[in-house]
Simulated assay, not measured.
Amino acid sequence: MPYLELSLPCTDVSQPRLEAALEDLGALAVTLTDAHADAPDEQAIFEPGVGEQPLWGEMRLTALFPEGSDGDLLLAALESFDAGLDLGGAAFRVVEDQDWERAWLDQFHPLSFGRRTHIVPWNQDLPEAARDADAAVVRLDPGLAFGSGTHPTTALCLEWLDGLDLAGREVLDFGCGSGILAVAALKLGAARADAIDNDPQAILATDDNAARNDVADRLRAWLPEDAPQRDYPVVVANILASALDLLAPQLAARTAPGGRIALSGILAGQEDELLARYAAWFDALEVARREDWIRIAGVRRAANAATG
Results as ranks from 00 to 15, higher is better:
residue 160 W to C: 04
residue 184 A to W: 02
residue 188 L to A: 03
residue 257 P to A: 08
residue 254 R to G: 06
residue 240 L to G: 00
residue 269 G to M: 07
residue 217 D to L: 11
residue 192 R to C: 14
residue 165 D to G: 10
residue 287 V to E: 04
residue 238 N to G: 01
residue 205 A to R: 09
residue 219 L to N: 02
residue 251 L to H: 07
residue 221 A to F: 06
residue 181 L to D: 03
residue 277 R to Q: 09
residue 166 L to H: 12
residue 201 Q to V: 15
residue 202 A to R: 05
residue 264 S to M: 05
residue 275 L to Q: 13
residue 250 Q to C: 15
residue 200 P to W: 07
residue 170 E to W: 07
residue 222 W to K: 07
residue 241 A to W: 03
residue 176 C to H: 09
residue 165 D to K: 13
residue 230 R to T: 15
residue 272 D to N: 14
residue 176 C to E: 07
residue 212 R to Y: 04
residue 210 A to H: 05
residue 171 V to Q: 10
residue 207 D to S: 11
residue 242 S to G: 10
residue 178 S to V: 01
residue 180 I to H: 01
residue 276 A to K: 13
residue 253 A to K: 09
residue 220 R to S: 12
residue 170 E to Q: 15
residue 209 N to E: 09
residue 223 L to N: 05
residue 177 G to M: 05
residue 214 D to T: 09
residue 209 N to D: 10
residue 226 D to T: 08
residue 214 D to I: 05
residue 248 A to M: 12
residue 269 G to K: 05
residue 168 G to W: 08
residue 201 Q to G: 06
residue 184 A to I: 10
residue 171 V to M: 10
residue 181 L to F: 03
residue 235 V to A: 06
residue 188 L to M: 13
residue 251 L to R: 09
residue 185 A to N: 04
residue 215 V to L: 04
residue 208 D to L: 13
residue 174 F to H: 14
residue 259 G to R: 10
residue 282 F to C: 01
residue 235 V to G: 01
residue 253 A to P: 04
residue 208 D to F: 13
residue 255 T to W: 10
residue 207 D to Q: 14
residue 250 Q to A: 15
residue 246 L to K: 13
residue 260 R to N: 12
residue 178 S to W: 06
residue 249 P to E: 04
residue 169 R to A: 11
residue 205 A to N: 11
residue 286 E to I: 09
residue 223 L to P: 01
residue 262 A to V: 09
residue 275 L to I: 15
residue 272 D to M: 15
residue 257 P to N: 09
residue 259 G to A: 07
residue 200 P to G: 08
residue 218 R to Q: 14
residue 206 T to C: 10
residue 248 A to F: 08
residue 260 R to T: 13
residue 193 A to D: 08
residue 193 A to S: 10
residue 164 L to E: 11
residue 215 V to D: 03
residue 278 Y to R: 10
